[in-house]
Each structure stands twice: as structure tokens, then as C-alpha cells.
Amino acid sequence: MKSFGFQKIVDRQIDLDKADLSLVQALARELTGWQRCIGCGSCSATCTAAGMGSFNPRKVQMLVRMGQWDQVAQEAVHCQLCGKCRLVCPRDVDTRQLMLEFKKLQTISRP
């Protein structure tokens, strides 16, 4: 391969036209309540696993809504299932349950 001394930049725009929203629909069949999230950040502020690395439960949820499942897969494994997120959420979202569900959906729905 010929080197020109630079590389093409990856386009980071979320392309909602092409995003895979089928898993979001599958999620909606499995669990309710997560649609209420207003992105207040309480869960990520209090999360045991956040802060030490890139894990951020609020952002994981937002990525799901945008159909960005590849990133979700990398992130959700960091959850320690401690339940602190659930304690502080003003919209009564069970984020802990969601993290469990994300992984289940990914193994079931994706070969």
C-alpha cells in the first residue's frame, strides 16, 4: 500500500438514516421505562464503575437510542450491577437491568 504520510479521517457523524434501530425495538419489547430517561446524568455521576474509565451509563443508553450498538457492546460489560444508578434516577429507569438486557439482546439477536 502506498503511503502519502496521512490517513483518511473517520467520519464520526451518527447516520440515523442508516443506524440499526431494530435492537431498540427489540429492547422496547423486553423492557419498559428506559424511554423515560432525560439524560440528567445522575446515574453516571454516582455509578461505581464510571469515572475510572470511559464507562458512562447515561451515554450507553443514549448510544442505544442512536442505534450505535457496537459501542454499547464494548461499554456495557463494565457495569458491576451494583444498582446505585437505580437508586438515584429521577425517572425511575432501571439502568442496571438495562445493562443486563443489552448483553442478552446482543447475544440473542446478533449471530
Binding site: T48, A49, M52, G53, V77, H78, Q80, C82, K84
Partner: peptide, 24 residues
């Protein structure tokens, strides 16, 4: 006071992740 002791299951069980546990 409310912070996790650092066990965090996935953080400790995998040796490479123990740094997280220590930091907590």
C-alpha cells in the same frame, strides 16, 4: 462513605482490571 470498596466483581476477577479495584 457510599463509594464501593473496589471489589466490583468484573474489576477484580479479571487480573488486568485490578487497577480499577485498587483505585476505588
Amino acid at each position: 462513605r457510599r463509594h464501593c470498596c473496589g471489589f466490583g466483581f468484573r474489576q477484580y476477577v479479571v487480573q488486568a482490571n485490578r487497577g480499577y479495584s485498587l483505585a476505588h
